[in-house]
Amino acid sequence: MTQISLSGEVAEAVDSGRPVVALESTILSHGLPPGRNLDVARRLEETVRAAGAVPATIAVLDGVPVAGLSPAQLDRVCAADSGLDKLSLRDLGPAIGLGRSGATTVASTSTLAHQAGIGVFATGGLGGVHLGAADSWDISADLGVLARVPTLVVCSGVKSVLDIAATLEVLETNSVPVLGYRTDDFPAFYLRSSGFPVPWRVDDAVRAAAVVTAHRQYAGSGVLLANPIPPESEMDRELHDRLLTDGLELLRSKGVHGKDVTPVLLEHFHTASGGVSLDANEALVLANAKLAAEIAVELA
């Protein structure tokens, strides 16, 4: 059986009970352009360290799941010609069995982090129920994994291209607590509010950690902590709505669906916004990494 390979630093932290924060690699290889992705990758790890935790960026390299990428491995993941597959949970077995390399999504990162003994994970946005899922059955594997894996996922809600009401309903059905961090509104990635309320609110890392600790005594599901994008980085709503309308039309015209939706839509936002969405994406994921590290410290 292929085991997950931990860097020396991550292995020591896990064994000694020190705080560790898992970080995904799909945002680096499929979400940000070359050059900027490596800069963000390094800043994410620096942010986690500055808050007192150990970063564990996760990917699958040559058939081996790795938690805690070395600088050389991080360079490889962020290279323009990396050719990494996008690996959700269903793809881990084939990629590992065939010796392939790939970047991990929320679903696969959460699963590998749990296997490694890491209970806190910071990302940008969660996958969810796609619009029209009643006909297409297009629902992100992220939700199913959160239902089964007791990981705390810190994110900025879900992208507005998704059916947010249905996404929240699926989380409720699967006993996944949804917390708003210093907000009563569920965020929509580039926007601080989706118009839907969150069931519970926490205003500091101590209370968030208390909720996670209590939840783990009664359920095997994960916890979702929705942290709105910093106010100064929120995208102008008029610009956002225009980009979203054009992006949805682009998806329809190209027949894009499933795991290809997010990268195509992100690329449209990045290109059509003149870089505004890139700045927003970077700001929110860095804020989530900082908050996740603060909570990991409290949990430890």
Rank of each mutant, 00 (worst) to 15 (best):
A209S: 04
L250F: 11
V54L: 06
L126F: 09
K86R: 14
L23D: 01
L266K: 07
S140Y: 06
A292M: 02
A22W: 01
D39T: 12
G93V: 12
V202C: 10
D204S: 08
V212D: 03
L265D: 00
V202T: 07
E249W: 13
P65I: 00
S160T: 02
L299S: 04
S136T: 14
P94R: 04
V10L: 03
G247R: 03
K86Q: 14
A11Q: 15
P33H: 03
V60G: 06
S194W: 02
G220V: 07
E45F: 01
A209E: 06
S233W: 14
S88T: 11
S193L: 10
L84E: 09
Q115L: 15
F269K: 00
D75W: 12
A113S: 00
D15L: 15
E24R: 05
V153D: 00
V145R: 03
A296G: 02
R207I: 14
G132I: 06
R42E: 13
D260W: 11
P177F: 08
F269M: 09
T104R: 07
E234A: 15
E12K: 15
L112G: 03
W200L: 14
S88I: 08
E234L: 13
S7Q: 02
V256Y: 10
V170W: 14
P228V: 01
R100K: 11
G275Y: 09
D39C: 05
G274H: 11
V14A: 03
D185P: 07
A51S: 12
A116V: 02
